[in-house]
């Protein structure tokens, strides 16, 4: 059998050279990850429980405006919506496997936005409220059909069942002015059990960023 002596062979030297490089790479990765997490501390809310993984990220007003304009809204319409909608991106995953066969049920109508304003609570502006809002707000300057359809589909579905491996992302509008601080109580059902969780210190996006 061919054998090697760790202290003398060339291959062995390569291994000893490789280890410090690996260590440096690992330390760099950890540092970058920490810095990234710190810089995003107030921006992204993450929540993991059982088989649910949720992420909420505020859009800057400018980002919302750009998104809406790209979907077919006029500049004025996009500005009007983005300024008061407090749009966030919501992402939900069911991380269960087929074997577990656990369904997660999300009903946004049961979520509560909590602010210091009066009234102190209101629900998110779900898909179903927007048709009436287009009529009321833009009666003389109605967004085109294509824009309204795209916005509807870009919004996170009001009610959805997530089977194992399912995930969805979409926009959620909290009906608040830019830069408003608020709390959000979310509710969901896993395997018939109801869970509630309140996110504190959330903030709507500002004009060029988040805070």
């Amino acid at each position: 059998m061919k054998t090697i002596d760790y202290k003398t062979t060339k291959r062995n030297k390569n291994i000893y050279l490789f280890l410090p490089v690996l260590l440096i790479l690992l330390l760099t990765l950890i540092t970058v990850k920490k810095a990234y997490s710190a810089s995003n501390k107030n921006e992204i809310s993450k929540y993991v429980i059982d088989n649910l993984r949720l992420e909420l990220r505020p859009f800057a007003v400018n980002t919302s405006e750009a998104f809406l304009q790209a979907r077919g809204f006029s500049q004025d319409q996009a500005k009007a919506v983005a300024k008061k909608a407090c749009i966030h991106k919501l992402e939900i995953h069911n991380t269960a496997t087929n074997a577990e066969n656990i369904a997660i049920i999300i009903d946004l109508k049961k979520w509560i936005v909590i602010t210091s304003a009066n009234p102190p609570t209101h629900p998110p502006a779900v898909r179903e409220v927007w048709p009436k809002r287009w009529q009321n707000t833009f009666a003389k300057n109605m967004p085109n059909k294509r824009a309204k359809i795209a916005f509807k589909w870009a919004l996170f579905p009001t009610y959805q069942v997530f089977w194992p491996a399912d995930y969805n992302w979409g926009l959620i509008a909290f009906d608040l002015e830019a830069n408003t601080e608020f709390k959000l109580q979310i509710q969901f059902k896993i395997d018939e059990k109801i869970y509630k969780k309140t996110f504190k210190n959330l903030r709507c996006g500002n004009y060029n960023g988040f805070t």
Binding site: H93, W153, F156, P157, Q160, N168, W169, G170
Partner: peptide, 24 residues
């Protein structure tokens, strides 16, 4: 359909037999 992407697998008889929400 409630969210996109949503996919359905339809069998030879025209029945929906699988579905998936989110990309695969």
């Amino acid at each position: 359909v409630r969210g996109m992407p949503t996919s359905f697998l339809v069998d030879k008889q025209g029945n929906i037999v699988y579905q998936a929400l989110g990309g695969r």
